[in-house]
Design a protein around this nucleic acid. Sequence first.
DNA 1: TGCGCCCGTCACAAAATCGTCATAGTGTTT
DNA 2: AAACACTATGACGATTTTGTGACGGGCGCA
Lengths: 229, 229
Amino acid sequence: MPGKILVVDDEPAIRALVQFALKQADYSCIEAADATEAQALVTADPPDLILLDWMLPGLSGLDYARRLRRERLTQNIPIIMLTARVDEEDKVRGLNTGADDFISKPFSPRELVARVKAVLRRLAPLTADEIVVAEGLVLDPSTHRVLAHDERLSLGPTEFRLLHFFMTHPERVHSRERVLDAVWGNNAYIDERTVDVHIRRLRKALMVTGHDRFIQTVRGVGYRFSGDT
Amino acid sequence: MPGKILVVDDEPAIRALVQFALKQADYSCIEAADATEAQALVTADPPDLILLDWMLPGLSGLDYARRLRRERLTQNIPIIMLTARVDEEDKVRGLNTGADDFISKPFSPRELVARVKAVLRRLAPLTADEIVVAEGLVLDPSTHRVLAHDERLSLGPTEFRLLHFFMTHPERVHSRERVLDAVWGNNAYIDERTVDVHIRRLRKALMVTGHDRFIQTVRGVGYRFSGDT
DNA sequence: TGCGCCCGTCACAAAATCGTCATAGTGTTT
DNA sequence: AAACACTATGACGATTTTGTGACGGGCGCA
């Protein structure tokens, strides 16, 4: 869910350490030993961030970073450089080629994860946490609250996301598969029937103000959020 | 307009470099070669940020930082440490004494300015020494006191900053990560669950007047300070 | 140097929520 | 009307998340 990270380093031990640390923090992780390998993985499926060793056999990390920056496909994938020694010249050169941060070896797993998080957060698109209003319901992501005719509803995390999805995509019928993608995440292997159960729970929560009627079942297709019947 | 920065370093070359970089970025800049000189300038006219070398003749940078943190006048002036050694141990110790960030020498002017900007931006809303009033609580940063319905509460430093953060950012739900950023500082690699523990301690302290109910848990998201349930 | 305060982390308890299933219910088709 | 297909619902164990007390370490102070 948080992101996929490519680790490029010729030392297997380093890769293993990094991968372990990142997995702990719930990132998915792929590895490459040199620029050639890395490039293959990148073109196959661009990661969300690249950890790039400064020294690499063949094309150096520095040169590879430069190349990544030139290509349209990869030019705004954040890059964090792993360096053994950092001197002034290197840092300036590195920053000029577009590295977003530096981590000097040796580093602690904790530091690694913190830096990765920081970079991803800094570059994350500002998702406008806008208040959604529909059918007498007010949903505010920033305060994590739902008001139904000035009455406060209490929803679990999943119910909250579910309602948010429906309110931001009203009128349209959504298949269970689509709902799973949108609310649970694109790669959650979860029984489609589970959607029914959460719809049920959401409806029950909305019942206190009668708003449950806005969630309609479309037999054989899915569910819809709408004021019309 | 952006801010006045005090550079404390015994090497004139470093001071010159730093001063040049900061002037480029439109900061005004004063210099000191050791803690004694620095202290004179600070008491004469407190700067908006202090860049402090780790190693100083006489009182070390670390000790001086500690001292700055103890004095009321200076305790919330942001401090960035300049350090030659990039030892994890040092970092932790430094952050514990209240440094807001670290820059390891040698550094690029660009990095320096970026860090300075980041720290000032992050701490801007927190350095305002205004008395905060909310939900029957009165918090006075200048005297470091909290009144709850005229009853005096005793809070530890971290609990105080935590409450301050919540009172100045009410209603919104704050993730543990965000709280760590705001209260501990971006560079403290601290377990997110530590937030829970301090929330617990703060709640316990607020319990004597029943104000603990204003700190609400939003499951799966974070915490919120609000008068509504 | 001993004492007390505060801190960050841990382990376990408690609570909330989740995903699945079995079964009942409802609508559709033949 | 019966068979079928799909959905609603309550129950339940599993999992995740949070609450809480305890512990050891660091630091300031006597």
